[in-house]
Structure formats: C-alpha cells, structure tokens
Amino acid sequence: KELVLALYDYQEKSPREVTMKKGDILTLLNSTNKDWWKVEVNGRQGAVPAAYVKKL
C-alpha cells in the first residue's frame, strides 16, 4: 500500500473528508482525482486536498 505525508494541518469540512495533522502518515487509497485524494487515517476514510500531502 502507498503512504503519503501530511504537509499541513487540514480540518474536515464535510463528512466525506478527514482531518489530518502536519506530519501524519496516511494510507493512500485513491489518487485519480488531481485535486482530492482518498486516504485512510486513524481508521477513517475520506478525502484530503492533494496539494496538502506528498507521496512517500
């Protein structure tokens, strides 16, 4: 499985998103959308802005 690093804090704004903190390591589930990537963090799945994460 592919991992990404959170470059910034992000507070979810809808139920389809997830909150992450700078430095979090997230499991990347889907990166086909260039703006929003689906990730899993702390057992929750949701979208985060692609510009806020970097593939490891």
Rank of each mutant, 00 (worst) to 15 (best):
G43W: 04
V41Q: 10
E40I: 09
D9Y: 05
G43L: 04
K54D: 06
Y52R: 06
K1V: 13
K55Y: 10
W36Y: 08
Y8D: 07
S31R: 10
T19P: 06
D9N: 09
N42C: 12
A6Y: 02
Q11A: 12
V39A: 01
K13S: 11
L3K: 11
E2D: 11
S31G: 11
D9T: 06
Y8T: 08
L7D: 01
L26I: 08
A47T: 14
M20Q: 01
E40G: 05
V39E: 00
G46R: 05
D35F: 15
A6F: 04
Y10P: 00
L28C: 06
G46E: 04
L3Y: 15
K22E: 07
K34N: 12
Y52W: 07
T27S: 08
V53L: 15
K22F: 05
W36E: 04
K34S: 12
L3R: 10
Y52S: 10
N42Y: 09
K38A: 12
A51E: 11
Q11N: 13
T19H: 04
A51C: 15
E40L: 09
N42Q: 09
R44W: 05
K13G: 08
K22I: 06
Y52L: 14
Q45T: 13
T27C: 12
D9K: 03
S14R: 07
R44T: 07
Q45D: 06
P15K: 10
V39K: 01
T19F: 07
K1T: 12
V41G: 08
K38M: 15
A6S: 05
K55F: 11
D35P: 02
R44C: 07
K21F: 11
S31K: 10
Q45C: 13
W37M: 04
L5H: 04
K21P: 00
T19G: 09
D35L: 14
V4F: 06
L7T: 04
I25W: 05
A6G: 03
K54L: 13
L3P: 03
S14Y: 07
K54W: 10
M20E: 01
Y10D: 00
G23C: 08
Y10W: 10
M20G: 01
K54C: 15
M20K: 01
V39P: 01
V53M: 07
E12L: 08
D35T: 14
V4D: 01
A50I: 03
S14G: 12
A47Q: 14
